[in-house]
Amino acid sequence: MSNIHVTTTINGDKVEFLADPRETLLDCLRDKVGLTGSKEGCGTGDCGACSVTVDGTLVCSCLVLGVEAEGKDIRTIEGMAEGGTLHPLQRKFIEHAALQCGFCTPGLLVASKALLDKNPSPTEEEVRYWIAGNLCRCTGYDKIVRAIMDAAAELRGEAA
């Protein structure tokens, strides 16, 4: 089982690691690169806690092999804040108490950022269907949806 050398870009930084070809991108992020912000809740693409973007496309990193990251641009929760400045979604999640245990939070933030990058004015229904693949067991989603809608409004320059 020989490992494969992978060169990729993660949150703007060039990163190299050796991947067992069976390892998922999530395994490599967590165990090889030390980025444990992406979580494994299911390993089957059903919970969204491992959400990242690969070349701008939102995916479950548990359903991507580490070796597939070669030459790609990977973005994770660790790259969402710019320096010390939180992304408005991150700030709104805190303000709205949109997290309880916080385990699904990184995946939800990455997923909702991908939504707002594509659709700055989603309806509540569009938000709910976009994040249908991000399970949260604590909140009943109410405050999460409100936080995303509020962050979208702020990003559009509307007063909260």
């Binding site: 994040i131 249908a132 693949g133």
Partner: peptide
Amino acid sequence: VGSTQVQGR
């Protein structure tokens, strides 16, 4: 088929 994330793949 699957979530937004799954649709990406």
